[in-house]
Write a protein that binds this DNA or RNA. Sequence first.
DNA 1: CCTCTCGGCTAACGGTGTTAGCTCAAGGTT
DNA 2: AACCTTGAGCTAACACCGTTAGCCGAGAGG
Lengths: 173, 173
Amino acid sequence: MSRRDEILDAAAGLLVEEGPDALSMRRLGELLGIRAPSLYKHVSGKEEILAALQERALRAMAVELEAARPDVRGLGDAYRAWALANPQQYTLVTRHPLDRDRLAPGVEAAAAAPLLAAVGGDQARARALWGLAHGLVDLELAGRFPSTADLDATWRAAIELFEPEPTQKESQP
Amino acid sequence: MSRRDEILDAAAGLLVEEGPDALSMRRLGELLGIRAPSLYKHVSGKEEILAALQERALRAMAVELEAARPDVRGLGDAYRAWALANPQQYTLVTRHPLDRDRLAPGVEAAAAAPLLAAVGGDQARARALWGLAHGLVDLELAGRFPSTADLDATWRAAIELFEPEPTQKESQP
DNA sequence: CCTCTCGGCTAACGGTGTTAGCTCAAGGTT
DNA sequence: AACCTTGAGCTAACACCGTTAGCCGAGAGG
């Protein structure tokens, strides 16, 4: 494992363990038994570290989405579950500016593919689904919903927008 | 106008004009012909400034939503339009931690009310609508969609999830 | 044996939010 | 009129932040 990878691992640990504010070059160096400026022998700067972490997280999320049941409900659940289980990573992926030049090609598309497939290839609907899932997750992680809100019910209502569930009463006789 | 309000106005200007990074206590003081520490005679700290700007923006957005046509389409359009016209404010409102103790009571509910009314009072659907609108706006502002993406079409598809438009072909003969 | 490169180091710069403590003018009180 | 209080500015400083410049020693290769 290269020193660079050690740095990225330590950075990832710091991020999930103590949050984004704790992820400073000095703290990171300290964690590795090194002074902050020495990090620059292996990494161009903090931006590169964050970009690498972003890519890692995006890949991990894509793996999870590919493993999910390939319909809207399965994907929605997987999307939400991953975000809630990895809030720091999700926030980094979606709130930090995405430098596509640094990102390996295909990574973004790989994460989006399952969503696109689940809505039958309709780009507009796929983006709506993405927006819906991201919006709900982002608001939930940001604590924007009142603590009394039933978010499971919210997600059920959201998924039903895409896959209407015939109610028992009104189903065809 | 109190000195505090002058400070908040200057802060708002700095935010929309030069972005969140430019909104530092020293820059803000400079803009007012004052040294940064003097700001603390009128304001408890940067957090209070941001909270006040957040509340202002939330109120402005609520006004816009109340003025919109009170259906899903009208609200969706108004939501998106306001966010795109005031990206810095929208980002501040949604990405900065919301301190409800500092927020005047009712402000949050006032912004949410039109959405709730548009879906007939169904809380779960209202939150889904909010999530959808916020998600699409957040992703658009963050530049997450490819530049080739037709976001108008995406919004049309999104709104249609709530208000299905009978197509010409399949409409009742 | 010499040299060169790698990976550490210290010192420093300019930036951030914030605190402590001083000063001075304005206004109200006695 | 003299005094006192308060408000609103100031400087100096602290502890952080990301980053750069330049030095140094160990180890590898010729």
